[in-house]
């Protein structure tokens, strides 16, 4: 009796896992193939106010303003911009010029209120000295900046 039950458990387990995997695929495709919209996407797409979505881009240089516990900044993709407000904890990497992915809602005036803010970093890895040297020599290229 016991080997039979064990076999049944293994088959059931295997099928369940396959089902979970398939479900994940389906929900991923169904929900959002797009993990975030860029500011340009917003202009082209007209997201309805109040609908929760993710906005991604760079934090525009010079746009950060702190207002008590709330922070205001602008998300840009170097073509379009979206103003954002957020109250809460920010990731260590959050700063001007850094990539950012924020989730929240946009209002009718086009102002985005963020519920969460995540930092997005690029694929470059450098020691501090090398980064400083590149910045000094003017060869520094920000996050996704301009595609070469």
């Amino acid at each position: 009796m016991r080997p039979k039950h064990r076999r049944l458990a293994y088959v059931a387990g295997g099928v369940a896992l396959l089902g979970a995997a398939t479900a994940l695929v389906l929900t991923a495709f169904q929900d959002n193939l797009v993990f975030f919209y860029s500011p340009t996407d917003l202009v082209e797409r007209e997201v309805e106010p109040g609908r929760r979505f993710r906005l991604g881009g760079l934090v525009e240089e010079g746009s950060i303003e702190r207002d008590g516990a709330t922070i205001h900044f602008v998300v840009t993709d170097l073509a379009e911009t979206v103003p954002v407000s957020y109250t809460g904890v920010l990731p260590d990497l959050f700063r001007e010029g850094q990539g950012v992915v924020t989730e929240g809602v946009i209002n009718e005036q086009g102002h985005f209120t963020a519920a969460t803010v995540l930092a997005r970093h690029d694929e470059n890895y450098l020691p501090k000295e090398v980064a400083d040297a590149l910045k000094d020599s003017g060869h520094w290229q920000h996050a996704e900046g301009a595609e070469q």
């Binding site: 295997g14 995997a21 990497l93």
Partner: peptide, 30 residues
């Protein structure tokens, strides 16, 4: 968690790797 600010997101990379993990478990079970 320290760099992005989250333990997990359902983006394409993380989701597809999780699926890979399930496929491995499925292979072991089968």
């Amino acid at each position: 968690k320290p760099m992005w600010g989250t333990w997990w997101v359902w983006d394409a990379r993380l989701t597809s790797v999780l699926i890979l993990f399930f496929l491995y478990l499925g292979h072991i079970a089968l």
